[in-house]
Computed example of a mutant assay.
Amino acid sequence: MYQLRASRRYGRYLRLTKGGLLRIDAAKRREAEQLDGKFVVHSNDDSLTPADC
């Protein structure tokens, strides 16, 4: 159970209840859904155009 909580992939979406149970944190899940499928590309090379990146 604690391995799942410590997971870099899933742990951020879990919360521990007062009774010691793991539950999905709905607010963090909704927050992640807003970014689902979006990618950001950035570069420090000023000579590149957006199309080149």
Rank of each mutant, 00 (worst) to 15 (best):
P50A: 05
A27R: 13
A26M: 09
N44M: 08
Y10H: 06
D46H: 12
F39K: 03
R9G: 04
I24T: 15
N44G: 10
I24D: 11
G19F: 05
G19W: 04
L48F: 01
Q3E: 13
D36T: 04
D36W: 07
A27K: 12
R15A: 10
S7G: 09
F39G: 05
A27Y: 10
P50W: 08
G11Y: 01
T49I: 03
D52R: 15
K38F: 14
G11Q: 00
G37Y: 03
S43N: 09
L22R: 00
G19D: 13
P50E: 08
E33H: 05
R30G: 04
T49P: 02
A26F: 08
K38Y: 14
G11P: 00
R9P: 01
S47H: 11
R29Q: 14
R9L: 13
D46G: 07
D46E: 12
R30S: 11
G11T: 01
M1G: 11
L35F: 14
L16W: 04
H42E: 10
V40L: 15
V41H: 03
R29I: 13
T17V: 02
D52M: 15
H42V: 13
L21Y: 11
G11F: 00
R8Q: 07
Y13D: 05
R5Y: 03
A32W: 05
L22W: 02
S47N: 06
L21H: 13
S43D: 12
D45M: 09
L16G: 01
L21V: 12
T49N: 02
Y2S: 06
K38S: 09
E31G: 12
G11V: 01
S43W: 09
G11S: 01
R23P: 06
D52A: 15
A32S: 11
T49W: 05
V41M: 12
G19I: 03
T49E: 08
G19Q: 13
L16N: 07
S47P: 02
G11N: 00
G11M: 01
L16H: 04
G37H: 03
N44L: 11
T17P: 03
D25K: 01
E33D: 06
Y2Q: 08
K38H: 11
T49F: 04
L22T: 04
A26R: 15
L48Q: 05
L22D: 01
Y2A: 10
E31V: 13
Y10W: 07
T49A: 07
D52G: 12
E33N: 02
N44A: 12
G11H: 00
D25M: 00
T17G: 01
L35H: 12
R29D: 10
S43G: 12
V41A: 13
R30F: 09
Y2P: 03
E31F: 15
S47V: 07
Y13K: 03
A27H: 10
N44P: 02
Y13N: 01
R12W: 02
A32E: 08
G37D: 02
I24E: 12
A6Q: 15
Q3G: 15
